[in-house]
Structures are given as C-alpha cells and as structure tokens.
Simulated scan of single mutants.
Amino acid sequence: MDALSDLLRRSRTSDADVRQLIQHPPWAMTFDRTPPLTLFAALGGRAVLRLDDRPDVEPCDLAPGDIAVVTGSSRHTVSDDLATASRVVIRAGRKHFLGAPSDHAELARLLAPRTYGAGGPGATTLVRGTYAPQGDAGRRLLSALPPVARVPANPRTGAALDLLTAEAALDEPGQDAVLHRLLDLILVLALREGCARLGLERPTWYHALSDPAIGAALEQVHTDPAHRWTVAELAAAAGMSRAAFAARFAELVGQPPLTYLTDWRMTVAADLLRDGSATTVAAAARAVGYQDAFAFSVAFKRVKGVSPSRWSREPEAAGPPVLSDR
C-alpha cells in the first residue's frame, strides 16, 4: 500500500460531512470551531476564503473548478468579497445570525440543513466537506499540509467536480452517500495534485512517491510495517544497491530508511494503543514487529516522548482531541 493511501486509511479520513453553499452577492459566511480538515470545491461563480484565526495567511481566491484544503484554521470565512461582512456564523452545525433581527427569519429560510442558500442566475456554488482525521496518523497527515492549499482547476480534478456538480443538483435516493464518496475522491485528488504539482514543501515522503524506486520501498514498509525490514531488503525492492538506496532514500524522504520505518511503526502503535485495538503494550509491540516489549517501549518513548503505557492510560499525552462539527 502506498504511503498516502495508508495514511488516509489509518487516519480514517473518509465520509465527509457535506454541505452545499449557494449564495448571491453580497454574501459572507463564517465557520467557527471547525474540524481540523475542511475542503471547499468551487462548482460555479467566485469566492474568497480567509482564515480569521491566521492573519499571517493570505486570503485564497476560488474560481470555478478550484479546490481549497484548509488544515490550519478553526475559524474561517468564505465570501464574495473581503469587504463583505458576515451575516451568519455556523458553529458546531448551529447557525448564529448576525446583523438586524428583522433579517434573521429570511436568513433562516435560506439556510436549510444541507444546502446553505438558494440558486439562480449569478449565484456562487461551493461544496464544503469537513473531516476529523483520527489519532496519531491523523496528526501526521495534518502536520504534512500547509494551513490552506489551493488546487487550481485542472483536467484531473475537473472530471470529478463535473460529476459532483451534476449530483449536487439532484434530489434522489442515495444522494448523500454519493456526495460523500465523491468528496472523499476529490480530497484525495486534491492532496495528490497539491503535493505532486504545486511544489508544497511538505510532506517530504510524498515527493518520494514519484520516484519509482523509493516509492516501491515505501510501499513495502506500509504494506507490512511489522516485517523485520533491513536496508538490504528495501534496496532490493527498489532495485538499487544498498549504499545508493540509503543515500537516495534519505535525500527524498528526509530520514534514513530505518528511521522512517521506526517512526511509522510508532505511529501505527500509538493509534493501536489509543483506540484500544491493542489491549497491552506487548500486543502493540508485536503488531509492529517487536518481539521484545522493553525494546519497543524504549523506541516508543524516544519517538513520542512518553512511554506507551502512559500514552494508552492518559489520552492527553497524545495531544488534544480531534474535533468534529457533525
């Protein structure tokens, strides 16, 4: 399994909470206390996205076909223009109306549970999906991304957005399931396009996936992290000499092969311990290839900063919980 697929699977990044935004200028909507990962897909019209809690990040203009992935903000506003004042704040799925009380009834009528607004000529249409990546794998995914990444319209994401546009206009049985799956697909396409084509600085391991030899070695590690991999075995999988492979891996991934292997094993073990999949430290150790629980505990503490028993006993040792606005 390739590294990105494995990371998404382990962080349980799927089944987005999907909403459609259809607004006529002037308009502005603020989302507060949002989950750690939000995706906006522009289906028609134009919008501007700003991170209210990250003034150091430039606003992001969205044209039809553009996608924005937000990971560094829990409060952001999307609008037709930066000068437009927000009329509603959506917090934990609840709508809080701003401005004159006489306008609140009309705003409430327009903001239905699944679609925020109404269509017509000149409207801007966006689809918004929120995700709550879980555990240590989720933190690893989020830390690999910038606060906001805009993926411009392109043929590879365009086909999926065309299908999303068509499906969003329907009201048929199973529509929610289709929208969720389509947005999951668009998230993966956006991450792939953003990392591969936009030159994002992080994650370093993603750039290595485009290298056939190093990508093959990473696939081996993620397919079977419990195997007792050696540099020689991974070099053989890559079709390279041991020395050339070790140098190339460190150059592209930013870590020596066995350091990366240990880090990934500890990520897997951390989530097993936290979600109860491994009932004991010894079981977690065996799951990631350690027969000696003591050696595993030493490696875990070196990588995570706390012992595995404390990690499983004290959830706060694993960092703040992941929020959801479902």
Rank of each mutant, 00 (worst) to 15 (best):
S5I: 02
R10V: 13
S11C: 09
T13R: 12
A16F: 10
Q23L: 13
A28F: 13
L39D: 13
L39Y: 07
A41G: 09
A47V: 02
L51P: 01
L51V: 01
D56M: 05
A63R: 15
D66E: 08
A68P: 12
T71P: 02
G72Y: 05
T77Y: 10
T77Q: 07
T77E: 07
A83S: 14
T84L: 06
V88F: 07
I90V: 14
K95D: 06
H96P: 00
F97H: 12
L98A: 06
P101A: 09
L107F: 13
R109V: 07
L110N: 05
L110S: 06
R114K: 11
T115V: 15
G117P: 06
G120R: 09
P121I: 02
T125R: 15
L126H: 02
G129N: 02
G129P: 03
G129R: 05
T130I: 02
A132K: 09
R140H: 15
A144E: 12
V148R: 00
R150I: 03
V151A: 02
A153L: 08
N154W: 07
N154D: 13
R156W: 10
A160R: 04
D162I: 01
E167F: 03
A168F: 01
E172M: 11
G174W: 08
Q175F: 09
D176H: 14
D184E: 09
L189N: 08
L191N: 02
C195R: 09
R197M: 00
G199N: 08
D211W: 02
I214L: 11
G215R: 00
A216W: 00
A217S: 03
T223Q: 10
T223Y: 03
P225W: 07
A226Y: 01
R228L: 03
A235T: 11
A235P: 11
A236H: 06
A236I: 00
A247L: 10
F249C: 10
L252T: 09
V253D: 06
G254Y: 15
G254P: 12
T259C: 04
D263A: 13
D263P: 00
V268N: 07
A269I: 12
L272A: 10
T280N: 05
V288D: 01
G289M: 12
Y290K: 07
Y290H: 15
A295W: 01
R302G: 04
V303I: 11
S307C: 04
S309C: 05
R310S: 15
W311G: 08
P315L: 14
A317E: 15
P321N: 04
V322M: 04
S324I: 00
D325A: 14
